[in-house]
């Protein structure tokens, strides 16, 4: 082999080695990034919303929640167990509304609606759709009075399960909707997810007035 040719081959192999190392690095980085928690996005609803008249009579207990990506679930009122954990229905197809929080369409406070992301036997449930719901998406909450209230997602956050913000459990503050489910990583040993995904949504104006009002 001529010297020149040998140099060319040498360079080519160097190039291949570098590419190979690059592929290793890229593969590892991409994998660790996709395993990381979903990015936080958007900003929390703030300030006073004049979307509803400010009258408490406009509020009603949530009975249904609906959104894009397959979010569609009946909702029942729930309270916390002795350990402070919300006693959600075990069937992931039904969500729980913290009944000491704000009602849908209330003048203030957080409407907290949560659902299991999955169950062992049933697989992923409708609340898994929260993971696919982007900032800017519209979500509706139907009350016991059959009125549909619209909200727009303004923020996505994840928190460690033990570090869920306490102001999610509040009837004061700007009126907002908080939709919760679990987020990874999943611990097979304890059978629990380590984090919560929270979608914050602000009320959207333009609800149709009830007939006769």
């Amino acid at each position: 082999m001529t010297r020149r040719r040998r140099a060319a081959v040498f360079l080519m192999v160097c190039g291949l080695t570098v590419c190979g190392l690059g592929a290793v690095a890229a593969g590892w980085l991409t994998w660790s990034m996709t395993r990381a928690r979903p990015d936080d996005a958007g900003s929390l609803p703030a300030g006073v919303h004049r979307a509803v008249s400010g009258d408490a009579r406009e509020a009603s207990a949530p009975v249904r929640v609906h959104g894009p990506a397959g979010l569609d679930a009946a909702v029942v009122p729930v309270a916390a167990r002795a350990d402070g954990d919300l006693a959600l229905p075990s069937d992931p197809r039904t969500g729980g509304w913290w009944s000491l929080g704000a009602q849908a369409g209330a003048p203030a406070g957080t409407v907290l609606i949560a659902g299991h992301v999955d169950s062992r036997r049933g697989g992923l449930g409708p609340f898994a759709a929260l993971h696919e719901t982007p900032v800017g998406a519209d979500v509706t909450v139907t009350g016991a009075d059959a009125e549909v209230r619209r909200y727009r997602v303004t923020a996505r956050r994840t928190y460690r399960r033990e570090k869920l913000p306490t102001d999610l459990f509040a009837r004061t503050g700007p009126h907002r909707l908080a939709l919760l489910t679990c987020a990874g990583p999943y611990d097979r040993g304890s059978g629990r997810y380590a984090r919560n995904l929270v979608l914050y949504a602000a009320p959207r104006p333009g609800r149709l007035p009830r007939p006769g009002h």
Binding site: G84, W98, V117, C182, R192
Partner: peptide
């Protein structure tokens, strides 16, 4: 005595992971 509401354990299947 009971704790105030503060956590939401919402998933047991591991399917999301």
């Amino acid at each position: 005595e009971a704790e105030d509401a503060g956590t939401v354990g919402a998933g047991t299947g591991g399917h999301l992971a």
